[in-house]
Simulated scan of single mutants.
Amino acid sequence: MRKLSIFYYVFFFFRGNEREEKGKVMKEVKKKEKLETSIGDSRSALGALTVYLITGLFLVVGFWVVGNKYSVDLISDPSLTLRLLWSIEFPIVVIIYSLFRRNPEECSYFRAVGRSIIGLISGALINALGAVSLGAPIGMQSLPKTIHWSFLMSVFTFVPATAVFGASWTDWHRVFASLKPTGNIEYMIVIPAYGAIIGGWFGAWPMPLDWERPWQEWPVCVCYGGIGGYIVGQIVSLSLMLFLRKSKNLKLA
Rank of each mutant, 00 (worst) to 15 (best):
M1C: 11
L4I: 11
L4R: 12
L4E: 15
Y9A: 14
Y9R: 09
Y9C: 10
V10M: 10
F11L: 15
F12L: 13
F13W: 04
F13H: 03
F14G: 01
F14Y: 12
F14V: 13
R15P: 00
R19Y: 06
K22I: 14
K22G: 00
V25G: 00
V25E: 12
V25Y: 04
M26H: 09
K27V: 08
K27D: 13
E28D: 05
V29C: 01
K30D: 14
K34M: 10
T37Q: 09
S38D: 07
I39N: 07
I39G: 01
D41N: 09
R43K: 04
A48P: 02
L49G: 10
T50L: 12
L53I: 14
L59P: 00
V61L: 15
G62R: 11
N68R: 12
K69F: 13
Y70C: 00
Y70R: 03
Y70E: 01
V72F: 02
S76L: 06
D77K: 00
D77T: 00
P78N: 05
S79T: 15
T81Q: 06
L82Y: 08
S87P: 00
I88E: 06
V93W: 06
V93Y: 06
V94G: 03
I95N: 02
Y97M: 15
F100E: 15
R102M: 13
E105C: 01
E105Y: 08
E106M: 07
C107L: 12
C107H: 14
R111W: 11
G114Y: 07
G114S: 11
R115I: 11
R115D: 05
S116K: 08
I117L: 15
I117Y: 14
G119R: 03
G119E: 05
S122F: 13
A124M: 08
N127G: 04
A128G: 12
A128C: 05
A131F: 13
A131M: 14
A136S: 14
A136H: 09
P137T: 11
I138D: 07
T146Q: 09
T146V: 06
T146N: 10
I147F: 14
L152Y: 08
T157A: 03
A161H: 04
W169D: 00
D171V: 01
H173P: 00
A177G: 00
K180P: 02
K180S: 14
P181G: 06
P181N: 06
P181E: 09
T182K: 13
N184Q: 09
Y187M: 11
Y187A: 04
I189K: 00
I189E: 10
I191W: 07
I191T: 13
A193R: 02
A193G: 13
A196Y: 07
G203W: 06
A204P: 06
A204N: 10
M207K: 11
M207C: 09
P208K: 03
P208V: 02
W211D: 03
W211K: 04
W211Q: 05
P214I: 10
W215L: 07
C221H: 08
C223K: 00
C223L: 07
G225I: 13
G225E: 12
G228I: 01
I235E: 01
L238S: 03
S239L: 15
L240Q: 01
M241L: 15
L242W: 02
K246I: 05
A253Q: 09
